[in-house]
Design a protein around this nucleic acid. Sequence first.
DNA 1: CTCATTTGTTAATGATATTCACTTAAATTA
DNA 2: TAATTTAAGTGAATATCATTAACAAATGAG
Lengths: 238, 238
Amino acid sequence: MHSTSSLSRRERLRETTIEEIKEAARQQMAEQGAAALSLGAIARAMGMTTPALYRYFENRDALVTALIIDAYHSLADTLEDALAPLPATDYALRLQTLLLSYRLWALQHPQDYTLCHGAPLAGYEGAADAIRPAALRTLKIIGFLLTEADAASPLHLPPSYFQPPAPVRETLEALQGVFPERDIPIPLLTFTIMTWIQVHGLIWQELSGHLPARLLQGGALYQMEVQLICQRLGLALP
Amino acid sequence: MHSTSSLSRRERLRETTIEEIKEAARQQMAEQGAAALSLGAIARAMGMTTPALYRYFENRDALVTALIIDAYHSLADTLEDALAPLPATDYALRLQTLLLSYRLWALQHPQDYTLCHGAPLAGYEGAADAIRPAALRTLKIIGFLLTEADAASPLHLPPSYFQPPAPVRETLEALQGVFPERDIPIPLLTFTIMTWIQVHGLIWQELSGHLPARLLQGGALYQMEVQLICQRLGLALP
DNA sequence: CTCATTTGTTAATGATATTCACTTAAATTA
DNA sequence: TAATTTAAGTGAATATCATTAACAAATGAG
């Protein structure tokens, strides 16, 4: 170990192989759907044999978990990039952009989105604890944005969010502890979760719901709902 | 064919066998989870060989589709049964009961709920048309209830729901045509969809989301949100 | 150079869905 | 009733999947 860099040559090669495996997996998902993910096909595309993959991932589920975590990070990165160039105090614009970018990412990466939010496939025992930090980044982004907006000019929130029943308050306080960076007040955290659930619900219906296909396509209903969320908050253009 | 009944003896036996297959499938799902559904295990439990199942279902996906349709009907039946004994004009109570019953059914039949709303399996898109009528029963129940409540005393709806942009209006009118029994006005239909999406989102998070497990358990947040939905509608106890 | 570790291979196991050819049982028809 | 058509079920075979074990080649450290 001579270690000018923190990674040895071997470790570097290993990392690139892992990336190549995941990239092949994503490629395959894009072509055949998230459910058709097969170790054999990945190995074949890489010119390897199947068992070799087990040197890099304990099993198929571990690979899926890694893909999910990557997907959540990719989503959060995209959201941050979308917010970065916007004026810092135009919170209405920021929130709208955030939510519309969320939908766009989902539509542009339907396989990843399905992997993240779909039902555990083929005996996949979700590694919830490993995934959670990546998943919560998105919630953080929405929550921090709302917190900043609220600090600038108090948002209109449902009065019930200020007096949650005891079990709700306890669980929300526990979730609060997950964001050590900044403090999201309980009412705002509640609204954040509800907004995220609403947004996700609309997108999931559009991607794989049982409603008539054309009902949600194009995102017109989605945009309407985003506007409504802003209105309810009392968020206006500055 | 002597046919006092509309089904011949053979057809009746066939029906019971089909029921037995689905029951074995549900049993297996309850024990091992929805993803572990296997034709071999079903046949084994019935004392048959695997290929025999193909006399009753074209393939595995067809069985899954049948299970999904059954599940949606079971859910809708449960909702109707929950509403039946309630006073016809206490719309606040009816809506609350409806939404709380929805969650209870989902928690009591998590495998069926997962089957209905989980990620679509490979090559599964074709089944959407077969599933839709059963899936829309639930939407109908919510929509009709809101329509009745609105007729008795106009509900408070977001103003934007009354002036949807053209593409939204078109797709909603198309969906309206799916309910020939009664006419659900566009604004109410919009609210119905949004309510259902919200409710489903909360439940799905509770069942298989990536948030901390205890956040949604117990349904305290769910109840709070149901109350909020009623408040926003201006629905009060009579 | 030597030895241990890493990375890959081939072969084998047991599970899966599905198809085919064949048999047996039942229902229909002559 | 006898003959014949139809349905239901079996067993063997195929092709795929994930996974494990035993072994060989490459690689890096001392």
